[in-house]
Amino acid sequence: MTTDFWFACIGAVLIAMALFTFIRHTHLLRRILAFNIMGSGVFLILVGLAQHQRQTDPVPQALVLTGIVVAVAATALALIIFRRFYQLSGRTELDEDQQ
């Protein structure tokens, strides 16, 4: 049981928790948070699993770095759209009956 493997396991747990929140809750902000936590879980697995199987590896580090940039951009976009949506509608969730 290496530390790297632990990272991967914790990643899996984080993903499971975040997925639950993502599906269970309709509050748009909570979903953004859940998405970020899920992302962190995936990154942990990406680094942990690869280093558990082989030696220390620069490639997953590079990938995670790119992944974080992408996740930040996506979060920013989601936040700005959500804020505008909230200003216009006063709602924090999507109306499900809307087509």
Partner: peptide
């Protein structure tokens, strides 16, 4: 995307 990336992570873990 995250589901896809998770798959990618598993594949990289297994095959490098």
């Amino acid at each position: 995307s995250l589901a896809y990336l998770l798959g990618v992570a598993l594949l990289y873990g297994a095959y490098g």
